[in-house]
Design a protein around this nucleic acid. Structure first.
Lengths: 185, 185
DNA sequence: ACCTATAAATAAAG
DNA sequence: CTTTATTTATAGGT
């Protein structure tokens, strides 16, 4: 039987304490990102499952690669987040620096109301307005054009575009928030 | 020195293993949500700090209360997520059921191109269009009105509203994605 | 990708 | 909120 006396080159394996500061080494940064992201997503799924809560995580790696997790889906949760502006349930949380994050979607419906109200005011200023027509060659942006220069067809386009734009936005946002915005009827 | 033999009423304190399934008891569900959400946000902040990655977490408690975390901010990350449609960097991750989440913002710029192209086609169909004017009393939605009935003032409103709408959307989305959409110039 | 020792998170009780 | 016992996550190495 042999006794080997190790002249203490302590084979320090196992987890060690680390400081929470930027990892310089690119490879170990990637490894850590991968491991911790996996752990984070697992915990998020447990939270959703245990507590019946909806949750979405969006993260971009240092290299700009996107990873997302969602329960039930990331998009569903994000849509709910974007559309909850007019609800009271707005809570912020602090980040690693102890700073608070703000949800700045909160005042949107107010802004819309203001815009619509301004339109109402403008409306009252006018009684009857003259109109003229002409075909527009298609130079510049429509909002830089004198409105008088727009013919019926251009207006049709405007209308169609606006409808399309509005529908796209609504479906993109998955929102009913804009449904009551009618641009002055 | 005294040796006390405990007639085993094992005082079972300390963490115990749990199953990952919905918690029924409302109180312990709230407690668990609070504790785990805190832990999750902490881990997320560590991930951001260690790996220089951007991260956002949005979660709604069972009661519908919103909590968010973001590094640098939740909104910044969500905007980047929404706007990265035309990038190649789309990675999905699986949720607790092993299902994959999908980012369905990917085809948006394509849709816009299609709309704009349709408008171009329409444009070519017309040469000159007549126009008329009249004040509109303000009944119904503008897109349900015959376009001929719109007077200059209504068109101004339309223009202003559209500008406002577009600007609001752009600032809301924080996007440059719509900047090139000009509704037919 | 896998292993192992250890740090960190946390379930239950006070 | 605090403590305690234990499970879970994970840093570093292979």
């Amino acid at each position: 039987m042999e006794e080997v006396v190790h002249t203490e080159k302590k084979k320090r394996t196992g987890k060690r304490k680390i400081e929470i500061k930027p990892i310089i080494n690119k490879t170990s940064k990637q490894v850590t990102f991968s491991k911790r992201r996996t752990g984070l997503f697992k915990k998020a799924s447990e939270l959703g499952l245990l507590c019946g809560s909806e949750i979405a995580i969006i993260t971009f790696s240092g290299a700009g690669k996107l990873f997302s997790f969602g329960h039930p889906t990331a998009d569903a949760v994000i849509h709910r987040y974007i559309n909850q502006s007019n609800c009271i349930n707005v809570e912020n949380s602090n980040d690693d620096n102890g700073n608070y994050n703000e949800n700045n979607f909160g005042q949107l419906s107010e802004q819309y109301k203001k815009v619509l109200s301004n339109i109402e005011v403008e409306k009252r200023k006018a009684d009857v307005a003259p109109s003229s027509s002409s075909s527009n060659g298609g130079l510049g942006f429509w909002w830089d054009q004198p409105i008088d220069n727009l013919g019926v067809f251009e207006l049709e386009q405007l209308k169609n575009s606006l409808e399309g734009f509005r529908d796209e936005i609504c479906s993109r946002i998955g929102s009913s928030l804009f449904d009551d915005i009618d641009f002055g009827n």
